[in-house]
Amino acid sequence: MVTQSITLAKNPHVIIATPGRLVDHLENTKGFNLRSLKFLVMDEADRILNMDFEQELDKILKVLPRERNTFLFSATMTKKVAKLQRASLRDPVKVEVGSKYQTVDKLLQYYLFIPLKHKDTYLVYLVNDLAGNSMMIFCSTCATTTRLAIMLRNLGFTAIPLHGQMSQNKRLASLAKFKAKDRSILISTDVASRGLDIPHVDIVMNYDIPTHSKDYIHRVGRTARAGRSGRAITMVSQYDVELYLRIERLIGKKLDAFDAPEESVMILAERVAEAQRIALMQEMKDLEEKKSRRKGGKGRGGDNDDTEEALGVRQHVKSGRVGKRGRGGGRGKGFRGRRR
């Protein structure tokens, strides 16, 4: 806050902020106001409203000059955004690229129907089968991103988590490693589904199917950008069928089935189970250390989200053959079971 207050005192021409932080400065930073504002831009306006920022926006709009230019941007327009249009704009003009929720033509989209109890095994099969590509894997919870990152690393893949419970510095560090191709797999919650332009993303996987269909468009939009091609694979369990059908209705397209022979997948089951066990042990250990630090004890400090030693990368599963990592962040094959 202090550093930002000093910067704001220099009267910058452009201020980029979240609604909550902007309200903090309006209320607590002496001399800071928006009376001379000329342009107000709200990016990802629907997401801002979904994150319960409506009260903050109301406070901001009340202190802005009436004579201004206001712009709202959203790839997925919602009724809430339309309501905000009426509240904050005078004589608005709507510019629409398309009336349908569409994905780009160069994006190949697949679904993979799986039994829930073997979900991790199917994920490992996909990651191994598509090794050599840069991937983003989306999950619904922060805990799942961490667990999958530990599990995949124990199988020899260079995976790194990204989620909202990480500090800002850790999130930026994870993103920097993925952008630099030091890590080939980024496992994230929807915190990475918008606003990121990483040209080298080849594949997007939905480990957890999004509960809101429009979030699917944002997730798969991380690949096949600026005329490039890309692939998106959505894992669908027996409990996800309705959510999957909603996505197909929204985009107006039937997805193709991704070929994953069951016998080839289940070859990996034993090794995946061992990696799951190691991941669970690591999670329990990290939880105990967090509790210890809260009580004032001496737990292990630093960033545990991306340390090879902490996550047991070198403790490769004994059964099966683990491949060597290639240059550029382990883009080589992790391991491969023999096909029958």
Rank of each mutant, 00 (worst) to 15 (best):
I160P: 09
D91H: 11
V41A: 00
I247C: 12
K291N: 07
S237G: 15
R21G: 00
S134Q: 15
R327W: 14
R231F: 13
P199M: 04
K181S: 09
H200L: 03
G164C: 11
A45M: 06
G301V: 13
R153F: 04
Q102T: 11
R171V: 01
K119A: 12
E27F: 09
G227A: 02
E262Y: 15
V322A: 11
G221S: 05
N33K: 09
Q282N: 09
L108I: 01
N69T: 09
E309M: 13
K290Y: 08
T141D: 07
R277Q: 14
T70S: 10
M281R: 10
G326Y: 07
R147K: 11
H163R: 06
R68K: 15
M284W: 12
A232C: 06
M266V: 07
G330Q: 02
L72N: 04
L250Y: 01
R277D: 12
R331A: 15
G299F: 08
D190K: 02
Q109E: 04
K10P: 12
T78N: 03
P19D: 00
E274V: 11
M42P: 00
K119T: 08
M77F: 09
E270Q: 08
N169V: 13
G156P: 14
F39C: 06
R66Q: 10
K318Q: 12
K94M: 08
E274R: 04
K38V: 10
E270M: 09
S292V: 14
T234E: 06
Y216I: 02
K83C: 02
M281L: 07
T103D: 06
R228W: 04
G328K: 12
V104L: 07
K298G: 05
A82D: 12
E289R: 07
V23C: 02
G98C: 05
M266L: 14
A45H: 02
M205C: 13
A180F: 11
R21C: 00
N33G: 02
A269D: 11
G297E: 12
H13Q: 12
